[in-house]
């Protein structure tokens, strides 16, 4: 069993994001970067399948600038076996990324590709679906699980995705409930927030990650067209939240909700 997990370098969700005054992007000075939180969940799930779900080689792949090495090292420190960085300094859109991943999948021939359902920077939620289509593989999106994140199963680090007899059973988060589906392998699975709580990289794990393989492939070597079809026109910060207001009675609150906020 080989699992390929995608890892994107994104701004720290805890950092305050500022939009450049001209709206062409965000201010990146002194900005901290992390592994996309959804990808972290995907790494955790792959490691659980490796440890408690029948064993696997866990290979990470990231696409981006050389600095994305740091996020791959994070995944290696969590316990992944090796990593690939497709070095691309230019901007890419989801289709470009899916095309690159298609090439890597052809080289690596994994049984399962695990991806975050979206990256928290541009929230596209497309790459997994596009990759499955390009590969003509089955896909299961928004993987979750029945057990809660406070359950014993979660505390014991059991995987939510069940792999057996060349198939993966995936519990999907859908409107108003959960749906369990089965897909034949190889397949693409994208993960949602409630699948697991990712582990932290332990200090000895961080030291071990130093010696693990991290292969770099220049994007030009893959011989594919990754020119973006998508162009960002303008970024705007969300409107400033107005200060709250105190009301003196329930009656006044209901009245204002009706007349001012117009929500009831």
């Amino acid at each position: 069993m080989k699992i390929l997990v995608t890892v994107k370098r994104v701004p720290d969700p805890n950092a305050t994001i500022r939009v450049k005054p001209d709206g062409t992007g965000i201010v990146t000075d002194n900005l901290k970067y992390v592994v996309n939180p959804f990808d972290e969940i995907a790494i955790e799930e792959a490691l659980r399948i490796k440890e408690k779900g029948g064993g696997a080689e866990v290979v990470l792949v990231s696409i981006g600038a050389k600095v994305a090495q740091e996020q791959l090292r994070t995944g290696l420190a969590m316990g992944a076996d090796r990593a690939i960085l497709v070095v691309a300094e230019q901007d890419l859109d989801p289709l470009g990324v899916a095309r690159i991943l298609q090439k890597i999948v052809e080289q690596e021939k994994p049984d399962l590709v695990l991806m975050g359902k979206q990256a928290i920077d541009d929230d596209a939620n497309q790459t997994g679906q596009m990759l499955a289509a390009l590969l003509q593989w089955p896909q299961a999106t928004f993987a979750s699980k029945k057990e809660s994140l406070e359950s014993e199963a979660e505390k014991n680090g059991l995987p939510g995705i069940q792999m057996a007899n060349g198939k993966a059973q995936v519990v999907r988060e859908v409107d108003g409930g959960l749906e369990t589906i089965e897909v034949p392998l190889p397949a693409v699975v994208t993960v949602d927030l409630r699948l697991n709580i990712p582990r932290y990289a332990s200090l000895p794990g961080i030291m071990k990650a130093r010696k693990k393989e991290l292969k770099e492939i220049p994007v030009a070597e893959l011989g594919i067209d990754v020119t973006p079809k998508l162009r960002v026109l303008r970024l705007e910060p969300p409107p400033k939240r107005k200060a709250g207001r105190k009301v003196s009675s329930v009656q006044e609150l209901v009245h204002l909700l009706h007349t001012e906020a117009k929500v009831i």
Partner: peptide
């Protein structure tokens, strides 16, 4: 990068 990772952990 390792020091940053340790700090984050």
């Amino acid at each position: 990068p390792e020091q940053r990772l340790i700090q984050r952990t």
